[in-house]
Amino acid sequence: MRIVVADIGGTTIKVAIVNEEGVLTQYTEYDTESKKGGAYLVQKLMNILKGFLPFEAIGISTAGQVDTKTGTITYANDNIPAYTGMKLQELLEKAFHVPVKVENDVNAAALGELHYGAGKEQTAFLCLTYGTGVGGAIIMDSKLYRGANGVAAEFGHIIVHPNGRNCNCGLKGCYEQYASTTALIRQVQAVDSSYQNGRQVFEALKQENKKIESVLSQWMDEIVLGLVSLIHCFNPSVIIVGGGVMEQSQVVEEITRRVRKQVIHSFSNVTIKQAVLGNRAGLLGAASLHIRHDG
């Protein structure tokens, strides 16, 4: 089966072809132009997909909450205006006359890691991605756990600091306001406004910048605060962490060390693993929705 897959984010649309063995080819990235809104984005996506014809199925990984039964975007923040309510599956099936599956991006990334990456030998794990916010997914018995309304694992909105920082969701003190890469950069800029991204932060560490080291240490404490609560709730054997900043092995190693010091002893056998698929995770996860995985 020739499956065309797209991973829709606030900045880029990643598109590729995936076969039934999970081999990914023709990988291409496009500017989302997200501020032009949901309708523009969907039309742009359709135009892009035409360039990948012929294909027998479409898999979509997308930002926002998704009703996977209908492939409708049930909630999206202002990063993509007027995306909420978009009937993505219906629109794409009418345009291309092939089966379409739509999944939330973090769920899709977790499925990618389950079938092709760091979770390949696992049947149950938690997956968290640290970026603009903090995304989450739960794998149980080799399947996504979706919850009553299909939107389980909003780990970024665990309250870690009651009456703390305002969050875009309307609450205060959410985990992602302290543990996301966005939060890290905000805290670093309070020390030195010249830093614009995580890559610059880690370059500063190589120069033994003590002020930046201190901020990074505080940020890792915030990550651990959320992880310890999740470990005590779920008792997972494995947690897979992703996002650009988690590609730094020393960060994952230090987080693991701090977690082991803070969890109750009977929970301390948890393993924290780096996601390994990078930009391919959501694409492969979207493709897996059309592929039978036996055993």
Rank of each mutant, 00 (worst) to 15 (best):
K143P: 10
N235M: 03
K143G: 09
V245T: 01
T11G: 02
T271R: 14
D221E: 07
G10C: 12
V245L: 13
R258H: 12
V160Y: 02
H161N: 04
A153V: 04
N235W: 01
A39D: 11
P81K: 11
N149M: 09
A287G: 11
A39R: 09
T123E: 13
E33L: 14
V276T: 15
V238H: 02
V241L: 06
K172C: 08
Y178S: 03
K172D: 00
E208W: 07
E154V: 13
A16P: 06
V102F: 12
D294I: 11
E103V: 10
G285D: 11
T129K: 02
A204D: 08
G38Q: 14
G22S: 08
G71I: 11
A148C: 05
A148D: 01
A109C: 14
E20A: 11
A95T: 09
H290Q: 05
E93A: 15
C167Y: 09
T28W: 02
P236V: 07
V18W: 10
N269L: 08
I80C: 12
K14M: 04
G295N: 12
G285C: 11
A137E: 02
T62A: 07
D31T: 07
F234I: 00
N47D: 14
N77C: 06
V15P: 00
Q89L: 12
P162S: 09
T68M: 15
Y83K: 11
V238R: 01
Y175I: 00
Y195M: 13
G242K: 02
G10L: 09
L205A: 09
G131C: 01
S217H: 12
G198I: 07
Y27S: 06
T74R: 04
C233N: 05
R186E: 15
G133F: 05
K69G: 10
E29C: 12
V188Y: 12
L45Y: 05
L88K: 02
I272Y: 10
R280N: 14
N107F: 06
F96Q: 04
L289M: 15
A39C: 08
L171C: 10
L289N: 10
E20C: 09
G150A: 07
H293R: 10
A153D: 02
Q218T: 06
G198P: 09
T25G: 05
Q248I: 02
I48G: 02
S180H: 08
A95F: 07
K210W: 10
G173P: 07
A109D: 01
G226C: 06
